[in-house]
Design a protein around this nucleic acid. Structure first.
Lengths: 198, 198
DNA sequence: CAATTTATTGAACACTCATTCAATCAATAA
DNA sequence: TTATTGATTGAATGAGTGTTCAATAAATTG
């Protein structure tokens, strides 16, 4: 059961190597053979831990989605007033840190698989719904805290995520870090306006 | 020069077949051999028209980007007051028609390539900047028409595209057509509010 | 310790891939 | 008509793919 078992360590190693190769060469150009080469191991060993290539991709996506969840969970369970919580969360959602959680190229490659794999689609869906739900709860208690109508919490949560996802798509088409930071800042401002923060 | 030349017809046929295969099997699982099979032709003929597989992908992206540009251009050059123009444009941007212009799976696959190919990155960049610029101009004349401060036209254009891109990412994670339509409607409303339409 | 399970090797499989090349066939031009 | 160009074939190449399988080494368990 412990992560220290050889099996879990090896799986983690393989996944890490896969991720690195996917970053530099793309998910579609990654292969069991390449992973084996990096780890200086026989290809058949990769198969021993991940029966098929699909398993490998599936595990990579799990790893990716867990990272997003983790950060969110972390901020969610921090102490503080609803006002402070929502403020901090918005800061993190529109930050470089959130963007750097997982390589964008690998992420969009994986995302594109949802259109052909129901299994992968449901994974992404669970993540997406989970995050929306959590944000929605925070917004709800924040509105309640301010004595405002909390019935629109869910809609606000959707709007914020639309801005987040749209922004990260957007900034990859900007050339300089400065432009990217500016757009992120502008989108954050809009989110804060919608939530009437400050 | 005419599109009726055999070369152009063949290229178009090949591209169309490539697109169809990419839709059902994914860009990464498409191959010259598969295209050849569909067209009942030798693989070497595909090479005759597209030297490498990269050329093929590049041409597919051009085809995709042209479609988006075309629709936008069409609406842009229509007669009417700035108010009417902006209203119609927003309707189209948040419509099923805009979403169906190009297969989402293929689109995101292609998009993910920008992180490893400067050539592809610049193609997407040109599209993105072009569309933003056009929308910005329309917003500008719309604000001028209403006698309002037009200095924020560019920012509004960015915000609208962030909402559009974020929404299409978002709705792929919704199960039913109804939910998708609802979210699209909600995002459109927000865009209209930002632009103070109606 | 012996027994058994797990980790790892190494060779082999059938397949698909992008690309090449020379050989034909058809269309166009001089 | 002949010369030339472009369209198409068909066979071949070498490299890479995911996967299988039996054999061996190492670790774990009884």
């Amino acid at each position: 059961m412990p992560l220290t078992s050889i099996t879990e360590i090896r799986k983690q190693e393989i996944l890490k190597a896969f991720y690195q190769i996917a970053i530099s060469e793309g998910v579609e150009n990654s292969s069991m053979a390449k992973i084996a080469k990096v780890l200086e191991v026989q290809p058949s060993l990769i198969v021993h831990y991940f029966k098929t290539k699909e398993d490998l991709v599936s595990a990579l996506i799990d790893y990716c989605l867990e990272r997003y969840f983790q950060i969110f969970e972390e901020e969610f369970s921090r102490p503080g007033t609803p006002s402070l919580k929502i403020k901090n969360l918005i800061e993190r959602l529109f930050s470089k840190e959130w963007n750097d959680l997982f390589d964008d190229g690998v992420f969009y490659s994986c995302y594109s698989l949802i259109f052909r794999s129901d299994d992968i689609k449901s994974k992404f869906k669970i993540l997406h719904e989970g995050l929306r739900k959590k944000l929605s709860l925070i917004i709800e208690s924040y509105l309640e805290f301010k004595g405002e109508d909390k019935s629109q919490a869910e809609q606000l949560s959707h709007q914020v995520f639309t801005l987040v996802d749209g922004s990260y798509y957007f900034i990859n088409m900007l050339s300089t870090k400065k432009e990217q930071a500016l757009h992120l800042e502008s989108a954050k401002k809009l989110a804060q306006t919608l939530l009437k923060i400050r």
